[in-house]
Design a binder for these strands. Sequence first.
DNA 1: ATCTGTCTAACTGTTTAACTGTTTGACCTT
DNA 2: AAGGTCAAACAGTTAAACAGTTAGACAGAT
Lengths: 243, 243
Amino acid sequence: MDVKFRKPKPNRIFQHVVAEIQAAILDGRLKPGDQLPPEMKLKDMFDTSRGTIREALRVLEQKGLIDIRTGVSGGAVVRKVDTRQITESLNLLIQAQNVSFDQLVEFREAVEGIVAGLAAERAKPENIQHLRELMASADRLLKEGSGHWRELLDIDVKLHIAIAEVAGNPVFVAVLKMVHENILDSFEWFELENSHVLQDSFQDMGQLIRAIENGQATEAGSLARYHVRKFHDYLKRGFRNEQ
Amino acid sequence: MDVKFRKPKPNRIFQHVVAEIQAAILDGRLKPGDQLPPEMKLKDMFDTSRGTIREALRVLEQKGLIDIRTGVSGGAVVRKVDTRQITESLNLLIQAQNVSFDQLVEFREAVEGIVAGLAAERAKPENIQHLRELMASADRLLKEGSGHWRELLDIDVKLHIAIAEVAGNPVFVAVLKMVHENILDSFEWFELENSHVLQDSFQDMGQLIRAIENGQATEAGSLARYHVRKFHDYLKRGFRNEQ
DNA sequence: ATCTGTCTAACTGTTTAACTGTTTGACCTT
DNA sequence: AAGGTCAAACAGTTAAACAGTTAGACAGAT
């Protein structure tokens, strides 16, 4: 017998509302920035209750398809689909699976190596310009001393993500954002104060950006991996350890 | 002035309910299979309205953290977090055309290359045994002709995931599942019938497994990348094209 | 003319109570 | 033991009301 029986479909009106609105967004009828009608209007359009509409909007919001605002001119606005949901759902998966820090670092090292190589192949002058601007910010803060470790950390992350964006593949960007969020959340970073590690780290980044600028893909990959490994060795040993 | 002002926090009770339940799941207080209290109980526990609880449950469901059932013994049950949400998130990006198929393949190629290299470094005899068993299944089906393309596709994916599991890093496993599930969903595969492509593909896999078994990390990485690229070239040109 | 303060209105966020639909399991019959 | 019926425990939906948020209009002060 070759007949397949299908699981009965769930009988939930709000899912139908989700599907309709999602389809309108994905097939281009609704574009980023477009405002959906207010809840009370949607309830009439779908001939359902306001509560059901609200539930559907919650799901669409969690899918990253809309933003919801309160107040005048409020309501649901269509969002440009971006990598945020991948990063969030990967984060949940990583947290639920108790992925070890070493495993995360291994993944990071591999991916940053690839991304740096691609960035070296694809960088345009305006990309390099942006990277240099971030580096210049970091240099200014470094000159003021390591009291600015919090901002310097932010810039470090911004640099890594910017390099991933130069590589031009959103999937790499999404996974690296996940990695960085997990790493940032995993440590108390105050020990960076009074430590040479950030100086050291930005020196590495400087070399990496030069390699990218010079189109040296293999060199950039190596430098990126070296940088990641070194930084995480510091994390393990503590920032105060001097050679 | 060194004072930083923070963006006001959204004032939504349901998000607080989401956060509390999510935290209980992620820190292990709630385990897969555990039943949450009924809505009416949760409303008392959180001292909020039933509607607000429902909205929170919608969000948790969309995050893949719970399943909700109707009827006696119904209610929200904690789910084992799996790759379903990351797959869906990536799928939305693809449908919104913010990730191209080429970008997905580029990501896949890079990651499969890394994973194959790690697997070659880490394979144990029982791992190789498992890979060989999957290959033996494929060989049997190949001998029966290409009418079994559906099962053969499944085995191909299983092989790739098994190699990732030999590499032993759950992050790589997760992202590869995400990729494979989207690739599987992106095509009508029936053209594989009457095509040599699967035979060809499993021949590549055989070589890859040998390289892994022999601990040849660089070779395994190259073979994996070559295999991915070749397969996707077939996808682009159509499976019937003969050289 | 520009800025500040106040108020209104347009929306979302939440609450409550009621009804409807789904499903499991207890119990009875064959 | 198997099948049917029914009740109860739940989720799904609805409607109406009130509370909170926010943009913009308007008036007054500088």
